[in-house]
Structure formats: C-alpha cells, structure tokens
Nucleic acid binder design. Structure first.
Lengths: 339, 339
DNA sequence: ATTGGCACTCACGCGAGGGGAGTGCTGGTG
DNA sequence: CACCAGCACTCCCCTCGCGTGAGTGCCAAT
C-alpha cells in the first residue's frame, strides 16, 4: 500500500534529519533504510508528502526537511514509548533518594532532566492552588509585624510578612495560629477559601482587622499566579543547539527567563499526567515558533496532578527519546513525592 | 608628559573598542579623541603599550585591542564612579519596595541587575553561616518524622526533614522547640555551634537521640556549603554577546549552571562591600578565561556583609557603567534588607 | 505503480584579485 | 628629545567567477 510507505518515508526522513541535520535526499533514504523500492519511487512519494505539507525543501535541488506538520504526524504515529535503560533508571532513583527537601528535589530533577535529554529542562513547583495546607505558623518579628509561614502537603514552604495595624497581642496571635491550623490544615482550594472567610467571625471584633489581614495574605499566596514558580536547567544545551534556531537563540532565552510565559505555556498544555508535545508554531509564542516543548504532569497519590515538568528544544529533536525521558522523570518524581 | 598621554591612549582604545568591537587604529583614535598629537605619535605610544603588554593586534596591519592586562590598568585607573540616572534609581527603589519575601526580593534584584547592565546577573542568597537564627520551628509530619524549619534574620527560610528513631513524644518536641529558640535565637556561627552542642545535656538521656539528631541537622544546614544558593538572570544577554566569546558560550553557560563554581567564584572575591573586578584569565576557571566578573557585597546593618551579587560578561564590557550599577544595586539591597 | 534515464537547478567550495586600513620606519623640524 | 609627515609594506576581507556534485522533476518504458 502506497499510503503506508509514505508514512514510512516520512518517518525515515525525520529520523535521518534529526540525526544528521542535513536535508535528506531520495538516494540516501533508500540506502539507509530498506524500503525495497527505487529512489525514483521515493521521489514520487516525497512530492506527495511535500504537496501535503509534511516536508519541504530548503531550496530547489536540495533534500527534504520535515515541517512542523511533518513532525506532528511523526509524533502522533509514535506508539511504543521505548523505556529508559536500567542505568538511567538507577541514576534517577539514587539521585532523588538523596534529596533533602523540596527545593532540593526539584533542583535535582530539573538537572537530571536536562542531562538526560540534552535540552533545556523546566520544572514547575507544585501549584499552591492545588496543594493542601499542612500547617500555618505565625512568628512575631517586630511588635507590629508577623512572619507568616505556610507549609503545604507537597512539601512547599512559603513565607510572607504581614503588617499589623497596631501592636500585636501574643494571646491573640496564639489563638489565631491555633484556629488557622484547626480549620485550614488539610484543606485546599476552594474549600480552603471558605474556611478562611469564616474565620474572622470566631474572633472578638477588635481583633478582626489582624485576623482578616492574615487571612487575606494566606488567600493571596495560595491563589495568585505570581506565586507559581519554575526552575530551569540546561540552558547551555540550548546554546549548543543554536544552529537549529535560524534566527538566534536570543528570543528563546528571553522567553525562558519570563517565568510568566513559561507558566502559561505549561498551564496551556493538558492538565493530566500524559506526555504532551507542542511543535514549533503550535506554541502560542512567536519566540518559540522554532522550538518544541515536551511536558508531563506530576503529582502525589493524594492530591493528583499538582504541576508539570518538561523540556524545551529545537523542533529538530529526538521526540521518542525525549518523551520517554520526560515521562519517566515525571513518574519518579510523583512516586517520590507520594512517599 | 608622555607617560600620562599613554594612559590616555590606553583609555581611549578601551573605550572605542568597547563601543565598536573593532580593533582601533591610530588615525581613528586622534580623530575621535582630542589628543592633540598626530597619528604617528600615537603609533609610537601604541608600540610602547604593546611592548608593555597592555594592548595587542589581532594580526599585523590591524588596529589594537586591549589585553586583559590593559583592561586591568584601565579599571584600576577608574576613580570617579559615575552615579546612576535618577530614572534608574527610581526604578530600583520602586521595584524593590513591592517585594513580598526574600525569594521575591532576590529574584527582582537579579533581574534588575541583568537589565541594568545587559549582562548575566548573579545574586547569592544570604549566607546561612553568616546569618543569625531568628526562629526554629518543629512540626511533626508523621509519627516518626519531623519537619524542621529554620528562619534566619536575613529573611531566609530553610526546611529539613528529620527522621526520629522512635515515635515522637509531643511534650519532648515542644520542649525541644522552646529550648532551641531560647538558646539559639539571635545567634550565628560559631556561637550557634557551641549552643547546639550544649543542648542535649539539658534533656533526659532517653530523649537525647532525637535532640542530637535535630541539632545535627541544624548544624549541617547552617554550615554546609551545599546550602549556599545563587540565582541567575539575563542568560540571554550572554547569548547576544556570543561574538565576544571566540570559542563559544557553551562552556561559560556550563560554568554558570554549576552553582558550586559560581559560589567559589563569589567567595574568592573580597568579602567586604567593595566592588571587585576579575578580568579574563584572572578568573581561576578555564571556562571563564574570556569573561569578566564584577561583584559587590551586600548585607544588613546588624549582620554586616552576608553575601555577594554581581555580573558576568565578556572582557569587552563597559566597566565603568557596570561597576556603578553593581555597586548601586548592592547598596539598595543592603538598605532594603536592613529595614 | 514502479523504474531507469536524462536534463536542469543551485548551493557550496575554491582560488584569484583588488581595495584599504593600518603599521613600522626613516628622516626632518622646533 | 619629542613630535610628525611621508612612504613602502603587510595582510585581512570582500567579491567574483567557475567547476562540481547532489538532488530534483519529468518522461517513457515495464
């Protein structure tokens, strides 16, 4: 069947191009892959594939290069996710086991991912919105100032300063801490929100301004997008791949430094554990029109998916390998956080 | 005096080369700077400067380029640090004022510095070793596991898991927390170390394993170099300046990702507030042989210098401007942390 | 549908040549 | 002694032209 062979040809083109970075011609194709037909036949198939927009030639009398659409078809066609090697899996396991706190885990994870894929790795911190509060601590810093410390069940810890209108009453602070923990611990949004609104009513009217101020800061911290965070690693990999970014990697690096852009990017991808791929101009940002993003969700057994992690690189990347690595790392991280 | 003019010539060469990235010749020099002598005279001076190793020519019949030694002399000669513009200072002020916690402050600072200097900016977290402990919190997570939260006077918060050998006794935990805060709060190393060693003796023998475990974790956290952290921004600026790195920026980016290298780099520079410059091969790392580093210390009124911040870029950089920016940002940050 | 043959197209590498910026040196002047 | 005009020389860099070869599209044949 000619249609099947065309898919096969596309696949071969993608593979060869990813390996060599050179436009691949009909002759080279039949030589490297046992397609059982002559170059002329391949040329016909190529013409059809080009007509359909899956491949293109940089200039007349050059070989073919996959388009974004071609990569997309290729990726959709991928079914078997090749597992990581035993050595790789061991490396992941031992690396994560030594971690000392959440920052450390995520830092190790992102480096690992960068190393495994030779791309830029991104790990989003567990979303505060989707985590449950484990504990709230209130520490007087000065007579009118509190340090609010929120500890989430994902292991994430956030601190905020709260300004009190008037000098703090130690017993009120103690009571507030107790009640906050009693009513809020173990809850996440949106239940946490209702718990917070009900809290002030439990206090004497004269204490309410403080209570409300604290509740407001808690709410802001947990809800606001600003507080979502990401960590990056492997930027050098991008620099090394700069030949694959026709313009320059400048705009890409710029985009990477804008946490907001990264967060949006991650949030716009599927919100479950599945591996998701965005190829070239499928990305909603101009600067990333020549980049591909591969992400997967991670989370805990109790809270479900709480955040995403992934990798960014040139569209000319080893999708199969990258997807496998991203999926594996996400799973290990989930397992680790659940324990 | 001929010697004075030679310094002037070196200065002019550095300025022009920094501006244009092109080897500067004798003719262009007299045209742009009013040196009051003819090109031929300048050529003699240039020959002398080259003899002394301050400048070099990429090839015969090309203009001159400053060597690292030349930049060094230039920098040492700089006396007047030009102040930032009013607009810049306002930007710093308002940006920092909105910060919500330490992470936020440092994040804003590093971005600001990158933007101001068009270089890669680095900010070291306040050293735990050089900060005083403000508060210790102990939270039982499971029956055999504690979450230890350390809050430093610099605003830095660190958390660690502590495994207890046997099920936790709430009253012991409460007592431990109280005593930890009583004896350790407000102290920094090395006094903190002695306080920690004296603590176990205050408890019943059967409780000591737990106490010692907790003290050990506190000590490790505060003392170990691993826990020193840095944040980066402006990597894209480096990519944009890649023409100034003859080899490639790959190794430089690699070095930047190795926090250990960055930390050593910062620690090896002067440990006071002064602006320090390392030029090219003055850097102890091969990868940074074509980069210059400009840093300054920052700290609080109470604790003194607690960490450094700075900028990294090609040796061909605007030293005067960069030094001014680094110094200004360090001062603003110090002022902010002291308040 | 597949294939061998064939003419055609272009990117790429190479070498030659000219232009020009810049230098070092020499000899002359206040 | 410091400075300077003039001059011969060097060598990078840009441009241009050309040959080469990989790759294509088309066509007629199987």
């Amino acid at each position: 069947m000619a249609d099947d062979r065309r898919l096969e040809v596309l696949r071969a083109i993608v593979q060869d191009y990813v390996r060599t970075r050179e436009p691949v011609g009909s002759r080279a194709l039949v030589e490297r892959h046992s397609l059982g037909v002559s170059p002329a036949t391949i040329r016909n198939d190529m013409a059809a594939l080009e007509e359909a927009g899956y491949i293109a030639q940089p200039h007349t009398s050059a070989g073919r290069v996959p388009t974004d659409k071609g990569y997309r078809l290729f990726v959709d066609q991928l079914t078997t996710v090749k597992p990581l090697s035993l050595a790789e899996r061991r490396a992941i396991q031992t690396l994560l086991d030594d971690a000392v706190d959440l920052d450390d885990v995520l830092d190790r994870t992102v480096r690992l991912l960068a190393q495994l894929t030779h791309q830029v790795a991104v790990v989003q911190y567990p979303s505060l919105r989707r985590s449950a509060l484990r504990h709230v601590e209130l520490l007087p810093v000065t007579s009118r100032r509190l340090l609010l410390v929120l500890i989430m069940d994902s292991g994430r810890v956030e601190q905020r300063a709260v300004e009190a209108g008037e000098p703090l009453d130690q017993t009120v602070v103690a009571e507030l801490r107790a009640r906050l923990n009693a009513t809020c611990a173990g809850r996440r949004m949106p239940m946490l929100g209702t718990a917070l609104t009900e809290l002030p009513a439990m206090f004497a009217p004269e204490d309410r301004p403080l209570v409300e101020a604290v509740c407001e800061v808690v709410r802001e911290t947990v809800v606001e997008e600003v507080e979502e965070r990401v960590v990056l690693a492997g930027t050098a990999n991008l620099a090394r791949a700069d030949v694959d970014f026709p313009g320059s990697i400048g705009p890409v690096l710029d985009a990477l430094e804008e946490q907001v852009i990264l967060l949006r990017l991650l949030q716009e991808m599927a919100q479950d554990e599945a591996v998701t791929v965005r190829i070239g101009h499928e990305n909603p940002y101009q600067a990333l029109a020549e980049a591909s993003v591969v992400t997967a969700g991670y989370g805990t057994a109790s809270a479900g998916t709480v955040a995403r992690l992934g990798v960014l690189g040139p569209t000319r990347m080893d999708y199969a390998g990258t997807m496998a690595a991203v999926r594996a790392v996400a799973r290990y991280l989930s397992r680790f956080l659940s324990s």
